[in-house]
Every structure is written in C-alpha cells, then in structure tokens.
C-alpha cells in the first residue's frame, strides 16, 4: 500500500516538473529553435506545441519500452530513427487534417526530428525510467513546452501584430516583435523572468542532447 502511494507521488512529480520547475524552454533551455521560429502567432505555437508533444509522448513510451533491447553504443541513431518515423507520421496527419497548421509551420514540422527536447528526454529520461514514468515526463514536458511557446507567441502577436490567435485587437504597435529580432528579444526576456522567479538555473542538468552538450560551457552559464 505504502509502496504504491510512493510510486503515485513520483508519477505526479514527473508530470508536474515540466510545467515550471524544469520547463524545457525557460529552464532547461531545450528546443530553442522552434521556440523562436514559430512563436509569431498563437495558432502556430499551439500547433507546434501539440505536434511536438505527441511525438515526445510516443517516442518516450517506445524508447522506454525498448530501453533494455537497444544496445548502448547505437542508442542515438536508434532514437533518431524512432523519432524521425514518428515525426513523419505526425506530419502526414497534420497535412491531411489541419493543412493550415502545416503551412504555418512549414519546414519546422519535419525539424521536430532534431528538436533537442525529444532527443534530450529520450537520452536523459526514457533511457533510464519505466514506461509510466516516461509517459508522465513526456506529458509534463509537452505541456510545459506548449505553454512556454504559447506565452512567447501571445506576447509577440499581441504587441507585434495587435492580434491574438489571428483575431485583430488593435493596430500594429511594434511590428519588430513579430520579426526575427523580436523573437530573440522576447525569448531572452522570458528566460530572464523565469530566472528572477525561480532563482538561477541549476547547473549541469542531466538532460542534454548532442548539439547541446557544447552548451554546458556556453548557454548553461
């Protein structure tokens, strides 16, 4: 009885840690490319967040289930293959059912394959945890990613285009915010805000993707 309760509490913790404490974009600094690129409109951000979350959930479940079968030496190529397959699947579904989202995301939809969050969670969490914990981790991280993306997009769309989810609110106050420089600026300010609220980020996170390993000395400081 007691043991069961403990597992439950753990699952809850895995689920909620992605929301703010270990938010992938604002705290772990994973998945910056899509966070900057598709955060021009709330609709695109929600579409991107949902697509990436589905891929993350499925890849975490599959990789966690296969963690004893995949040899350690070829794990990264194996993960990439699983993830690329899932991305292709999601891409086909999005193309068929929500073509508007497909054209809004463009090349960034197939690029979910190399999104740091997904590979980072695969190698940093699913690799060493059970299926249920990995699924909870993926759901929490997915929600955290989508929320951060939507927050950044809302700020950029409201103050850059004077609209919210495509609905016009007022004129265009600061068009620069929906241009690339605005993306860097709003993202930087949001991470600073998260730092302010949560205290400086813990160093040496366990979850790093290959291209973020170099960040240890760079972005993490």
């Amino acid at each position: 009885m007691k043991a069961r309760k403990e597992i439950k509490a753990d699952l809850g913790k895995e689920l909620t840690k992605g929301f703010l404490r270990e938010n992938p974009v604002l705290r772990l600094l994973l998945g910056m490319c899509p966070a900057l690129a598709v955060s021009t409109t709330v609709t695109a951000a929600l579409g991107m967040g949902t697509a990436a979350s589905i891929v993350l959930l499925l890849s975490n479940i599959i990789i966690s289930a296969l963690r004893r079968i995949i040899p350690d030496r070829v794990r990264i190529p194996a993960y990439i293959t699983v993830i690329a397959g899932l991305v292709t699947l999601v891409q086909m579904l999005v193309k068929a059912y929500v073509p508007a989202i497909d054209s809004a995301l463009g090349i960034y939809l197939p690029l979910i394959t190399v999104n740091c969050i997904i590979l980072g969670r695969a190698d940093g969490f699913a690799n060493s945890h059970g299926v249920a914990a990995s699924a909870c981790d993926a759901i929490g991280m997915g929600i955290g990613f989508t929320a951060a993306l939507t927050l950044i997009a809302a700020l950029r769309e409201i103050f850059g285009a004077g609209a919210f989810a495509g609905i016009s609110l007022f004129g265009t106050p600061a068009a620069i915010l929906i241009l690339p420089p605005g993306g860097f600026f709003v993202c930087g300010c949001m991470i600073a805000l998260a730092n302010k609220l949560q205290g400086p980020r813990a160093r040496k996170q366990e979850n790093k993707c290959m291209s973020c390993m170099e960040c240890e000395g760079g972005c993490a400081t």
Binding site: P180, F185, C189, K196
Partner: peptide, 23 residues
Amino acid sequence: IPKAFQGLPITLVAASIVSLSFL
C-alpha cells in the same frame, strides 16, 4: 549585467540586436 539577465537571456537580447542589423 543585471543578475536575472546573466547567461543566456542577455545573449539572446544581443542576438536580437545582431539580427536587427541583418534586417
């Protein structure tokens, strides 16, 4: 640099200015 901006945030703000020049 203000404490909250140290590290990545200020780097992103600087990137924003470099990106502005490329516009």
